[in-house]
Design a protein around this nucleic acid. Structure first.
Lengths: 343, 343
DNA sequence: GAGACAATCCAAAGCGGTTTGGGGATGTGA
DNA sequence: TCACATCCCCAAACCGCTTTGGATTGTCTC
């Protein structure tokens, strides 16, 4: 068993009070005594018991993440993992723990209530917001600081969030393609009940509209973002009477699928058909080099995790300072997958 | 703020003792009283404060996961995320929390010490074991129950683990290819300082040896498992004087890269060149359908997470019951990516 | 030399639960 | 009627820490 404050105090012939104050940097303790205490603590590898400490201080020094698992939509995707990793870095550096609960999505609300009623966390990070996400109201009413990774369009109550400018970056990407002479541009999107996907579609539609192009429903798709989905989308659309000359993809993995489809059709990427994809900058899905393979709207989701965590901790330490918001811009990185529209 | 046991007791005109016993199912409480207490607790949405409870019971009801981040090797990969998700399901169902610490890999050992000295967790799950992993000795000496996802070959001290039979499945895959007449078989492996990758190579070498084939170093590679890595490996090897006719890949993503290489060379998968890949059965990297795209050694890493967590909880509840071990077999699923060796 | 004032240290009371060790009714058998 | 269980309930101690409110000693001022 680990050494306790009381034991440490006894071994030094001091009271627990003094030892506590010595270690926590209070002024009313003799410099020599403090040194003695610190050395002894070091030697004994003393660490204050988290539970006791947070019971006494009333702060749990932990942030909660609730991960719903469902049969339909999978939130445990690569993007999620990297975001968590980024947030986790920030938490540890600040001395906070990260608490994760994986629950069936029907129990999600209950999981939040439970976590809070038990006093297990000081703040909550919300993942994968929908168009109209009930969690905002729930958490606001429960009165706990929280941050949303993304936004939820159809909620009027103010809340703290960090998002990338999906609408603008997809608009920008669309215009980039239009400038290259593309008129038939396809959107291979993620599920549009998720807020980010809707924003991307909006950006895409904005881009088309500003060029006076009428959107074609046959060129828009939404689904879980997998490689086969990208492949299917490309094969289907290229079979249309008027196939697209360019594709906008919502993820690197979908872009892989698109690229495979092109290859199977004997078409050359960037010459016969252009692709722009969103790139979350995941280490195991690299898209770099002198000329990246894909032209991409790039934004590090890990960095997003770091920043969102920092904001949440600020919110925890001063609940009055909110609502905090951060809109990150995704950079358009030109790669080898885009070129002039063929004529 | 949440309601406390004391408040609940006062509102019922009972002592905290009785309320506690009523809620925790002790026998010495009148049935009518118990009902009254339960109803009141329900109505007040009472939950015992985790910190207070675990301080009193001496059990933290939490499992720790330490995630090292480094510039060189990235443990935050898709496989990791799904394992965590599986483990998390089991934890929540059993009333345990999952604690995650993301730390620079130089601080990893310190993070374990810290977590344990603070009494923050009852058990620890270890990820990504190396060939000779110092964490086994460390955790054994710290005297805390732990489970390893994978194994570490060069440690003699017994420990609890759950692994898939990497050696056998890669041997099996190799033999499958040999039975199809392949003699030049390439291995596109993960980093071989990780234990699982070494076992896969061993299985591959076993397979070759049992057929009397001398391994060719030019046909073996190891690296971080990315799509471009697979692509590069294929392109390089197909340029050899005697190119391989089949590839063994350590992950779906690498297999994507191999496939792209083939396609660029105008070769047909399953006819000109065969591929077998390991498939962790991730939802966003599907490999199914009537005839899966890839012949694969398949094993659900999420299920592995569930099982490993169950074992760890057993270990926590009865430290004497260990060491527990589980060797899962990966199924060889025949898909469209394998065929007779071309002559 | 007495009172004021720092400088140090400590006893004790929480934080919100669980658990030990009774204790007052009520019922039962001798 | 009395001794003795049984049934229910409670007071108080404890888990390991923080924090409030002194207590003690030494120094300085006038």
């Amino acid at each position: 068993m680990s050494v306790t404050l009381k034991q440490l105090a006894a071994s030094l012939g001091l009271s627990p009070t003094t030892v506590s104050r010595a270690l926590n940097g209070f002024p009313e303790v003799n410099a020599a005594t403090r040194k003695r205490v610190q050395d002894a603590a070091e030697r004994a590898n003393y660490r204050p018991n988290t539970r006791a400490k947070s019971l006494a201080t009333g702060r749990s020094m932990a942030i909660g993440h609730v991960i719903p698992v469902s049969t339909s939509h999978e939130i445990v995707n690569p993007v999620f993992a990297d975001f968590i990793a980024g947030a986790g870095e920030t938490y540890s550096r600040a001395g906070y723990e990260m608490l994760m609960r994986v629950v069936p999505d029907a129990d999600e609300a209950q999981a939040y209530r439970d976590l809070i009623a038990r006093g297990a966390v000081d703040g909550i990070m919300v993942h994968g917001p929908r168009l109209k996400d009930a969690r905002v109201d729930l958490l606001a009413e429960l009165g706990i600081p929280f941050m949303i990774h993304g936004r939820t369009s159809q909620i009027e109550r103010p809340y703290s969030w960090l998002d990338i400018n999906n609408q603008r970056s997809f608009r920008r990407a669309t215009q980039f393609l239009i400038d290259f002479g593309h008129r038939r541009i396809a959107l291979v999107n993620g599920l549009e009940d998720l807020d980010f996907a809707t924003r991307r579609r909006r950006g895409y539609l904005d881009g088309l509209e500003s060029a006076g192009i009428t959107p074609d429903p046959a060129l828009m798709r939404q689904a879980e973002m997998t490689e086969p989905y990208g492949y299917r989308a490309l094969m289907d659309m290229m079979r249309l009477p008027e196939p697209p000359t360019a594709f906008l993809s919502s993820s690197m993995i979908v872009a892989y699928g698109l690229r495979r489809g092109l290859s199977d059709l004997g078409l050359k990427l960037g010459r016969d058909v252009s692709i722009i994809t969103h790139d979350d900058d995941l280490s195991y899905l690299p898209n770099d080099g002198d000329v990246p393979m894909f032209t991409a709207t790039k934004s590090s989701v890990r960095e997003a995790g770091r920043r969102a965590a920092r904001m949440l901790l600020r919110l925890v330490e001063d609940p009055q300072c909110g609502p905090l918001t951060d809109l990150m811009e995704a950079a358009l990185m030109v790669g080898a997958s885009t070129g002039p529209a063929p004529r």
